[in-house]
């Protein structure tokens, strides 16, 4: 299943009858209730106001530019996090010596909520791109590391023995057994990392730099443009959904051989 066909298929999944049956009444309520004036319409915009703001942002507000900036920062931070976390976690899971030296630090730092890092990050990196990338990295690194580590630790020792008996070196074991065995969990951990990375991206953009959907969100707040705020939130949600679906695609590819695991 190629990517170009998978997204429409996923969207088709969304537009199933069950989903529509709830979405359409909700949309109607969203349109009607603000118009009744129970809450001022400028503070609680109707669906049509939000749609108009979306068009406005897209045509005049540089929505595409800010979206590209957000996606770029996210991609950079995620790539760094995965490249750092996956090998480090595999090696920690493989070797007790490495584990004893690395894991305690990870376990102590991981519970700190990523948003608590923002002030320190601003002090260290200023408020430009490095600060944003670092915060995304922080958000994505820990869940990826810990889940990958656990998956590698849970590697079925049978496979290790089977490879060892042929004479496989430790490096061969890591590359050919540990990594593949843990791949399903690795992708799942990346999925968690992506979600957290997106959270951190929004927080980072709200604090510094002048690009990105998070920045647009803050600008909308600063200038009392509530419908635009809703549009930004919707865009962020759509980005998160798309990324998760893409990763799900990757995981589905693996299910060809993964079934064997679940049969045990």
């Amino acid at each position: 299943m190629t990517v170009t066909r998978a997204i429409p298929r996923a969207l088709g999944r969304l537009l199933r009858a069950e989903w529509l049956r709830v979405a359409v009444p909700l949309a109607l309520l969203w349109e009607v209730i603000p118009r009744t004036g129970l809450v001022p319409r400028t503070l609680a915009p109707a669906l049509s106001d939000v749609a108009a703001a979306a068009v406005q942002l897209a045509v005049h507000g540089g929505l595409a530019r800010h979206l590209a900036s957000s996606l770029g920062t996210l991609a950079l931070g995620l790539a760094l996090a995965v490249l750092a976390a996956v090998p480090a976690a595999i090696v920690s899971g493989w070797n007790p010596l490495v584990r004893r030296h690395v894991l305690p630090y990870v376990q102590v730092v991981a519970p700190v909520p990523p948003t608590a890092w923002v002030p320190l990050t601003i002090v260290l990196f200023g408020v430009g791109l490095p600060m944003k990338v670092f915060l995304v990295f922080l958000g994505a690194f820990f869940p990826t590391f810990l889940n990958t580590y656990q998956a590698v630790r849970d590697t079925n020792p049978r496979y290790l023995a089977a490879a060892r008996v042929f004479g496989a070196s430790e490096l061969s074991l890591v590359i050919h057994v540990h990594f593949w065995h843990a791949l399903g969990a690795i992708l799942m951990s990346i999925r968690t990392g992506v979600t957290l990375g997106l959270v951190m991206l929004t927080a980072a953009e709200m604090y510094g730099g002048r690009a990105g959907i998070g920045f647009l969100l803050m600008q909308a707040k600063e200038f009392f443009q509530i419908p635009a705020m809703v549009v930004c939130m919707g865009v962020l949600g759509a980005v998160g959904w798309t990324l998760v679906e893409l990763l799900g695609l990757l995981e589905a590819r693996l299910s060809v051989w993964k079934d064997l695991e679940h049969q045990r």
């Binding site: 023995a161 008996v165 042929f166 004479g167 496989a168 070196s169 430790e170 490096l171 061969s172």
Partner: peptide, 15 residues
């Protein structure tokens, strides 16, 4: 104790 980086079959047995 197989090799660290290089595959090193130690005995000519299979399992």
């Amino acid at each position: 104790a197989n090799g660290l980086f290089r595959d090193r079959p130690r005995h000519d047995v299979a399992v």
